[in-house]
Design a binder for these strands. Sequence first.
DNA 1: AATGAATGAGGCTTCATTCAT
DNA 2: AATGAATGAAGCCTCATTCAT
Lengths: 194, 194, 194, 194
Amino acid sequence: MRHELTPRGAERREQLMSTAARLFAERGYDPTSVGDVVEAVGVGKGVFYWYFTSKEELFAELLRAGHRDLRRGQEAAIGDEPDPLRRIEAGIVASLAWFGEHRDVFTLLQIARNDERFAPVLRKAQEIAVADTVRHLKDAIVEGQIPDRDPEMLAQAILGVVERLTLALAFERGEPAARVAADAVGFCLGGLRR
Amino acid sequence: MRHELTPRGAERREQLMSTAARLFAERGYDPTSVGDVVEAVGVGKGVFYWYFTSKEELFAELLRAGHRDLRRGQEAAIGDEPDPLRRIEAGIVASLAWFGEHRDVFTLLQIARNDERFAPVLRKAQEIAVADTVRHLKDAIVEGQIPDRDPEMLAQAILGVVERLTLALAFERGEPAARVAADAVGFCLGGLRR
Amino acid sequence: MRHELTPRGAERREQLMSTAARLFAERGYDPTSVGDVVEAVGVGKGVFYWYFTSKEELFAELLRAGHRDLRRGQEAAIGDEPDPLRRIEAGIVASLAWFGEHRDVFTLLQIARNDERFAPVLRKAQEIAVADTVRHLKDAIVEGQIPDRDPEMLAQAILGVVERLTLALAFERGEPAARVAADAVGFCLGGLRR
Amino acid sequence: MRHELTPRGAERREQLMSTAARLFAERGYDPTSVGDVVEAVGVGKGVFYWYFTSKEELFAELLRAGHRDLRRGQEAAIGDEPDPLRRIEAGIVASLAWFGEHRDVFTLLQIARNDERFAPVLRKAQEIAVADTVRHLKDAIVEGQIPDRDPEMLAQAILGVVERLTLALAFERGEPAARVAADAVGFCLGGLRR
DNA sequence: AATGAATGAGGCTTCATTCAT
DNA sequence: AATGAATGAAGCCTCATTCAT
C-alpha cells in the first residue's frame, strides 16, 4: 500500500486483488499478465500501479493476506479447547472449511511453494503452520495421548494429508468439506496413535 | 523425437534434458528460458530445436519420463509380494528412495501440478499412482487387514504423507530417505488401520 | 500563467518553480517527472496543472525567467560605464556572481542547449548575450582598445571561458566567484588584446 | 560486447552505433527510443539487444569510443613537437578538425555532461583532457613562455574557448574548421601570455 | 484551488521460435 | 548437426495529462 485510500480506493484495491487471485489460480503466476488483470476488472493499465508496486508485490500480498485469514479461522475454531487432540481435530476441520471457501488462495499457496520468488513468503507461512501443529502434538505426547515421536514429522504428515484430501476430494471430486474433514481427521488420528 | 538419433545425438538429447530438468527445478518453468538451457549446455540455440519441438514439449517429456521411471522403481520394489499392506509399504519406501535420487523430477511434478498447461499430463500420472495404491488397498480390505473405508480417499492420504515428508524431511531437513520412509510407513499404516 | 493569482497562489507557483528547477538541475529534464515535483512540494498532482499548462511550458518558463534575471544583473553591473573593456569586465564579473547564486539555472541552461525542444528558447537567449557582448567589443575596436577581429568570434570565446570556468572552478572546485571572475577577466582581456 | 562477432555481426553493430549516434545527437538521449534506432536501421527490435545490453550501455559506449578516437587524433597531431605552446596549438587545431568530422560525438559529449547517468564516463574524459593540457602548460611556464598562473584554470579556459567556437562558428555558422582553429589559437595564446 | 484516481500511449526489455549459412 | 543472427509479439512499468469530486 502506498497511499492512504479513500473508501472508493479501498474498494478498487479489493477488486483488483480478488480478480488477480482468481486469474492467478486459474492460469498461474507468470501466464497471468497485468494486462489480463486490469482488463478483467475493466480499468486502465495504470490503475494497477496506483494500487500496487508491482505484479510480484501483489502476489506476495495475496499470499500474506490469505495465510493470515486462514490462521485466524483456525484459531477461532480451536478457541480454548483444553484437549490437544481435539485442538488438532478442530484445526483440521477449520482448515478444510476455510479452503472450501477460498479455493483460489489454496491454489495460490500451492503455486508459490515451487517458485523461488515467493519461497520466502511461503516458507514463513509453512513454518507457522507447522509450529502451531507441533505445539498441540507436544502437549498430546506429554499428556500420554499419543506415542512419543518426532512432532515435526507428525505435523508435516498431517499437513500433507489435509492438503492432499482438500485438493483431491474436496476440489476435484467435489465432496463436501465436512465429509472430507471427517476422513482426514480419522486418518490422521490413526496415524498419530499407532 | 523427430529424427533417428545417432549415439552422439542421443547423448546430446540426454544432456539437454538433464540440464533443463535442473534449471526448471531451480527456477520454475517460465522463468527458465530456452536460452538459459542451451547456454548452460554450451551449445547454440538451434540445437535445442533440433532435438525438441518446443520448450513445452520438452517439459512434458521430462514429466512423462520421470513418472515412467518412478513407477518402474515402485514395481520392482513390490515384485510379487503377496501381502497387500507389505506392497503398500514397499511402494512407499521405493518412492522415497527414488525421489531421493531424483529431486529435480520431484520438483518438476510439483511445478506441473499447478500449471494448467501441464495438468493433463500430470493428471494422468496421478491417476495411475492413485489407481496402483487403490488396488492394494482394496486387497487389504478384502483380506480384512484394514477397516473398509473409501480406498481412493486412503490412497490420496498416503500420497499426501509421502509427498510432504519427502519435501520437508528428506529435502529440506536432509534426513536419510530410509529414515523418512520408516516414519511415513508408520504414520500411514496407523491411519489405515484405525 | 492562466489565471489571476492570489498572493498565496503566486507563492505556490514560486514554490513549484524553484523545486522543479532544483530537480531538473539534479536529474535532467526527462528523468524528472511531474510526479517528482509535486511530491517534493507535497501537493497533489492537479495543482501542477492549475499553475502550468505542461511540464514543457514550466521548463521554458524557468529558462526565460532565469535568463531575464541574469541579464538584469549584468545591466545593473555595467551601469553607464563609458569604457567598453570595463563594461565587458563588469559583465563577466556580474555573470560569475549571478551564476554563483543560481547554480540551478546555470545547469538548466546547459541542459536546454542540447535539447531540440528548448533550443529555440535558448537560441534566443544566447543571441542576446552574444549581441550584448558584441556591442561592447565593437566599441572597443572603434576606440582602438583592441585589434580589429570578428567581434562575434570574440564574444563567443569570452562566453566560452566564462561558462567553463564557472562550471569547473566555481562549481566543481568550489572556488569563490570573485576569484574565478578575476581569472576569467585576465584570460579574456589577454585574448582580446593579443 | 557480449559475444564474439562474425564480420557480418561487427558490421551490424557499427551500423547500430552510428545510427544511434546520429539520432541521439539530433534528439537527445531520452527522446530517442530504442524503437527509433532499430526502425532507422530497418531491423527488428530484438537485434538491438543482441548487440547491446541496454540503451544506456550503448550510449556510454559511444562516449567512450568517441573520446578515445578524439584523443588519438590529438596525440597524432602533437607528435613529438618540443615547443609546449606549439603542442597546445596543435592540440587545438586537431580537436577542431576532429570535431568537424564527428559532429555527432561532439553533441553526445555535450549531452552527457549534464546527465547524471553519464557523468561518471564524462568526468573521466574531461579529466584526461584537462590533464593533457595542463602538462603542456606547466612546461610552458617552466620554460618561461607564459606567466605563472594556475594551469588548471588556464586549461579549462582553453577548453571552453575551443568548445564554444566549435559549436558557434564551425557548426552553427558553418565556417571551415581551419579558420575557426586559427581564431581559437589566437585568442588562447593571447589569454595565456598576458 | 486542490485531491485522489484514472487513462492509455509508449518505453525498455525478454524470449520462443525461425532461418541462412 | 550446429551456429549466429534475426524476428516480433508480448510483458512490465512509467508518466504526462485529465477528470470527478
